[in-house]
Amino acid sequence: MPGAPFPGNQLKEYFRQTGEVWLFTVRFFREAIRRPFEWRELLHQCYTIGNKSLFLVGMTGFIMGLVLTLQTRPTMEEFGAVAYMPSMVGISIIREIGPVITALICAGKIGSSIGAELGSMKVTEQIAAMEVSGTNPFKFLVVTRILAATLMVPLLVIMSDTISLFGSFLVEHFKGEVSFRLFFNQIFRNLTFGDLIPATVKTFFFGFAIGLVGCFKGYYSREGTAGVGRAANSAVVIASMLLFVIDFIAVLVADIFYDL
């Protein structure tokens, strides 16, 4: 809303947007199950999303593993608990740090590019052009992007976790002369399904949130080039906040189910 002067208006605007997001989500599910599916575009989007974030996610994952291990090692040494290093680092990366950091990076990379792309398609009337040729732009643009993000973010997290553990291994190997086998044996011995399943399930929700927010902001971006910038920017901000909310809920739910 252009310059909502009263708090009442802001509140109204907030509820209006929330309602719109809800309708958008419902529409996503309705259109996602209706034939025909846009398979080619889905594959293309999966490829684009994966390809765009692969390097960045791998890089940050690797550094994350290095830093985490380097920083915790002295403390663990002090307590004479160096032997627990692999399992400790493994659990924290797989359960929390890997998914959250990777998802945040994806929010920045994927969320903003979806927001900007759909925003500029909206502004240049490409979305309207699809509509007037009797095709369904929501299905072609939105459904495929949300699905692609939902599928690709978990894969990227798994990849990032793996690279991260490898980074951690390098530190352990050179500082503590731990062998590859011992390192990964330690990790997997102490990992339970209670660690793996909630950590994986929540990454699907992360991906869904990133795709949804990016698409929503882009699809409903306002006229003009400034609208495109705003769409990209608010997609990142809102998606990042949403990730923490989802993470919190995921931890609560996992807590109930697995009684950690």
Partner: peptide
Amino acid sequence: IRTEVGFLFQGSALYD
């Protein structure tokens, strides 16, 4: 009906 009605946009609106 929309398939029977062509629409040429002011800015062309090609899918870029």
